[in-house]
């Protein structure tokens, strides 16, 4: 899970603050490790939602792969805990 190479140096998802553009329904910026990243564009969107039959396995998250400051980031919004995290920071 915490393959540091795959996650671009991240050892575990880290909490981030996200600025949400409601009109476009996209993150427009996020703050990670004290630095603000402006989202240039969103490349992919995907959703993971499964395990509903058991409260322990239940997952409901939506992911955005965004380009910010020339890097790729996978932002994750957990709908159950209503929190954002950074899952991966690529290249």
């Amino acid at each position: 899970m915490c393959n540091a190479k795959r996650t671009g140096g991240l050892h575990r998802p880290e909490p981030v603050a996200v600025v949400w553009d409601e009109r476009r329904r996209r993150p427009s910026a996020f703050i990670w490790r004290g630095r603000r990243y402006r989202v240039a564009r969103t490349l992919e969107l995907w959703i993971v939602e499964t395990g509903w039959w058991n409260d322990e396995t239940r997952v409901s998250r939506s992911y955005s792969r965004v380009e910010a400051e020339g890097r790729l980031f996978d932002l994750c919004y957990d709908r159950l805990t209503k929190t954002w995290s950074l899952e991966r920071a690529l290249n």
Binding site: I47, V48, E49, T50, G51, W53, T57
Partner: peptide, 12 residues
């Protein structure tokens, strides 16, 4: 049994 044998990952 569940989890879904078709490997469905979301509910879209």
């Amino acid at each position: 049994p569940l989890p879904n044998p078709l490997g469905r990952k979301n509910a879209e």
